[in-house]
Simulated assay, not measured.
Amino acid sequence: MGGAAGGDPTEDGAAGSDAATESGPVSEAGEAAATLRERYDELRRIETRIADLGRDRVEAAADTYRRAHRVLDQYEDDAVGSGDFAAYVRFEGEFANAVDVDDDALAADAFAAADEAVDKKRLSERDFEAAREALEPAGEYVDLLADRDEAVDDYRAARKAAREARQSLADRLDELREVASMADADLDADVDRLREPIATYNEAVRDSFDAFYKSASAREVFAFLDRADATPFVDVDVPPTDLAEYVAEYEAGTEPLPTLLEYADYSNSKLEHYVDDPGALRTAVAVHRTYIERLDGEPLTLDWPPAGGDALAYEIGELIPLVARVAADETVATLRAVRDLARDDEYERLRRAAEVRDALADPELRLVRTGAIDDRVREAERTLDVVDDVLAETDR
C-alpha cells in the first residue's frame, strides 16, 4: 500500500535491471578465461625451461652475471690506464672471484671469456667493453628469471580478472534465470485495464488528501491518521506524542496544520494574538515541522504492480471507509471498480503481465517475447562451466 512495493503505474519497465547486451558478461568471461589459459601456459613454459636447466643453476648464473657487472661498473674509471695501480689490483682480484664458477656451471665459458678479456697488465676501456660482450650469453639467465617474474605477475592479474568476470557472469546468469522464470507471462495482455483505473484512483486520492490536509482541523487530520493506523494495509506515520497532545488540548488544534506551521513562524508578539500559549505551540509544532510537511495521501494509494487478487480485494475493502472520509464519491467508486477487477477471472493474467513488464527492462522483455531467453541461459551456463574448468586447471 502507498507505493511501498512499487511505483505509480504511469511508467512501464522502469524497475528492471540495467540490461546491457547479453553477450557482455558472457563474452567477457570467455575472453578472461582464454587470457588466463594463455598466461598460465606461458608461465608453465618458462618454469619448465628453468626446471630443465636447474633452478639453482639458473639463479647462480644470473647472480654471477650481476656480480661481474657490478665490479666492472665500480672499477672501470679507476682501473684503466696507468693511473691507479691499487685500483687495478683490487679489480683483478674481485673480478676473478666474481666470475669464478665450476666448469659445468651455466655460461661457464662466458664467465671465463670475460675474465680473460681483462686479464692483462694494463686495461683500457675497450677491455671492459670486451668483458661485457663476453658476459652477454649469461645475461640470458637474468632475462629468463625476469620473464618468469613478469609471467607470474601476468598470471596473477589474469586470474584475478577471470575470477571477477566469472562472478559477473554468475550474477548475470542469476538475472537471466529470473527473467526466464517470467516467461509464463502474457506480455500482450492489455494491462491498461488495470493501469488506468489504479492511476486514476491514485491521483484522485492524493489530491483529495491534500485538500483535506489543508482545510480540516489538525484534530480531524490526526483522528484520521489514528484510524488509518489501525488498518493493517495502510502504512501511515502517526503524529508524535507531544504534538498529538498539543493538538488535542489547545484551542489551536482546531486550526488546519498549514496554519499551525504558519503560526510557528510568527514573532512572539504577533503569535500572542492567535494562540494562548506561544511557547507551547513552538515547542510542539516547530520541532515537528518536517513530520507535518511530509504528510500526504501516499499511504492511501495502490501499489503498482498491484497485489494478488484476494489480497488486493481485501486491501481495498479496508481502504474504502477511510477514503470515503476524505474523497469524493467518484474516487470511492473508482476504488470499488478496481476491487471488481481484482475479483475478475482475467485479473491474475493481467497482474502477472503488469508485474513482469514492470520488473524487466526493454532488452529483457525482448528476450522473453522472442523466446530467446532460454538460449541465453544455456549460453551463460556453458560459458560459466568453461570458466570454472579453466580456473580449476590453472590453479597454482
Rank of each mutant, 00 (worst) to 15 (best):
E150H: 05
A228H: 08
E116P: 00
G30V: 05
A110M: 13
W304G: 01
A15G: 11
R369T: 08
A79K: 04
E348I: 06
L187V: 14
R44V: 15
I46R: 04
A380E: 01
A328K: 15
V368Y: 07
E293D: 10
E11V: 10
R219G: 03
D174C: 06
A112S: 14
A216N: 10
V89N: 10
Y347I: 14
L391V: 05
G93A: 11
G54K: 07
A98G: 03
D190M: 14
G139H: 10
S208V: 07
G308F: 03
A61C: 13
A130P: 02
D303Q: 02
P25V: 10
T331V: 13
D276Q: 02
V285P: 00
Y141W: 05
V71L: 02
E203Q: 14
E38Q: 13
T283V: 04
R44G: 01
R45E: 11
D77A: 13
M182W: 12
R349D: 13
P278H: 04
D395F: 02
E133R: 08
A5Q: 10
D190W: 11
E196T: 14
R156K: 10
G93L: 07
D277T: 01
D303A: 03
L173N: 14
G2M: 09
L350H: 04
V356G: 01
D104F: 06
